[in-house]
């Protein structure tokens, strides 16, 4: 298997089996890390930590498993836009709920 080469000429062939298995292994390790990290009590940071690791995992899935890394710029911008809009929806809602006078 020629892992390094495949990344370059994936335009037509997609990533190799090996790369996928490596990514899969990393995903499993990250799953272990996030489960382990949840045992330590960091208060609110637990949520931040859990979401950060989830986002790393999600990026690996999106860029490698879903081939986004090998798609052209248009696709990447579109994906970015979808996530940006979702974060706007969540973020702006907090202008209400985070500042509500005690219920």
């Amino acid at each position: 298997m020629h892992t390094t080469d495949t990344i370059k000429d994936t335009e037509h062939h997609g990533p190799s089996y090996t790369l996928f298995v490596i990514i899969w292994a990393i995903l499993l390790v990250l799953t272990g890390v996030t489960v382990y990290a949840a045992e330590i009590d960091l208060g609110f940071l637990n949520v931040v930590m859990a979401l950060s690791i989830a986002t790393i995992k999600a990026s690996l899935v999106t860029f490698i498993f879903m081939h986004l890394k090998y798609e052209n710029l248009t696709f990447k911008i579109m994906v970015l836009m979808a996530f940006a809009i979702l974060s706007i929806f969540i973020g702006l809602t907090f202008f209400d709920t985070a500042y509500r006078v005690a219920v």
């Binding site: 706007i88 702006l92 202008f95």
Partner: peptide
């Protein structure tokens, strides 16, 4: 996509949200 809560000014949402939206 940034302005939806202007339908809710009198709904009881926070004053901050009223101003922002």
């Amino acid at each position: 996509s940034l302005v939806w809560a202007h339908h809710m000014f009198v709904s009881g949402m926070s004053d901050t949200a009223v101003m922002v939206f």
